[in-house]
Amino acid sequence: MAQRWLDEDQQRTWRAWLSVSELLPRALDAQLQRDAGLSHAAYVVLAMLSEAPGRSRRMSDLARRSNQSQSRLSHTVTRLEDRGWVRRERASEDGRGNLAVLTDAGWDVVRTLAPGHVDAVREALFEPLTAEQTRVLGDALQAVLDRLDPDHSQRLQEGDQPT
C-alpha cells in the first residue's frame, strides 16, 4: 500500500495552522504580560471563573475548561491565590472536591483586562479576515472539532469560551 502524503493545499494549510497555533497564543500572551504581568493560561482561568455561577468551579472542571492538566492548573491557581485573585475552598455539596473561587479583586482584574484582550484577539485573528473568511474558518474549525470530539465531552460549550 502506497503512503498517502498531504497534497499541496493540505501541506500549505497544515503548515499555516502550525504557525498560527504557535504565534497566536504568543501574541495574546504578550498582550496580557504587558497589560497585567499575566499569562494567557492564567487569564483563561480567571475568565472561566468569571463566567461560572457564583464565580466558582470545581478544579477538575476548571482544568478541562482551561485546557490544563490538574497539576498545571494547581500551579496556576496558586499563583493567582498569591495575587489575591482566586481562593480555594472545599465543595459544600460533597466536601470531597475543591473549588476555585474568583475573588472580588480577581473579578476587577477580569473586567479591566477583558476589553484589551478582546481587542488583541480581534486584531490578531479577525482583522486580517473578511466576514466570509471568518465564517468559513469557523465552519472549518467546527468540522475538525466534530472529528476530534464527536461526543462533545472535551470541548468548551457555547458561552464557555474565554474572550
Rank of each mutant, 00 (worst) to 15 (best):
L99V: 10
G106W: 06
R72H: 15
G95T: 11
M59I: 05
H75D: 11
R65M: 04
R79N: 06
R83Y: 04
L80N: 09
D61W: 02
A100C: 08
W107L: 15
S56N: 09
R88P: 00
R72C: 05
E89A: 14
M59G: 06
S71R: 10
G95C: 11
R79K: 11
Q70H: 12
D104N: 14
L99W: 12
S56R: 14
R65T: 01
E81Q: 12
G97K: 12
Q70N: 13
N67Q: 11
L80G: 08
G54A: 12
L102D: 06
S56W: 04
T103M: 10
D104L: 14
L73A: 07
R90W: 00
P115Q: 03
S69V: 02
V86G: 10
E89G: 11
E89H: 13
H75K: 10
D61Q: 08
N98P: 07
V110N: 03
S60Q: 09
L73F: 06
A100R: 12
N67R: 13
V86S: 10
G97D: 14
D82T: 01
A100S: 13
E81R: 11
G97Q: 14
P115I: 02
E89K: 14
P115D: 04
R57W: 00
G54V: 03
R58S: 11
G106D: 02
E89W: 06
D104V: 07
P115M: 06
E81P: 08
V77E: 01
E81Y: 03
L99G: 12
T103S: 13
L102W: 05
L73R: 09
A114I: 00
T103I: 09
W107H: 15
S74G: 09
A100I: 07
M59F: 02
R111A: 00
V110D: 01
V109D: 01
G116Q: 10
Q70A: 14
R96I: 12
M59A: 08
G116T: 14
G116H: 08
S71M: 08
L102R: 10
R65P: 01
V77F: 03
S60H: 06
Q68E: 03
R87M: 08
A91W: 07
P53M: 01
Q68V: 01
W85K: 05
R111S: 00
R72A: 15
T78E: 09
T103N: 12
D108A: 15
L80C: 04
W107S: 15
V101T: 14
A105Y: 04
D94S: 10
V77S: 02
L62A: 07
E81K: 12
R57A: 01
V101Y: 10
R72T: 14
D82I: 02
V77D: 03
E93D: 04
T112I: 02
R83T: 06
W107R: 15
R90E: 00
G97A: 14
D104G: 15
R87Y: 06
M59R: 11
V86Y: 09
V86C: 12
R88F: 00
E81F: 04
T78Y: 06
S71V: 06
A63L: 02
R64D: 06
D61E: 08
A91S: 12
L73Y: 07
G84R: 09
L99H: 13
R96E: 15
H75A: 11
V101K: 13
D82A: 08
R79L: 07
R79S: 09
E89C: 13
L62E: 11
D108R: 15
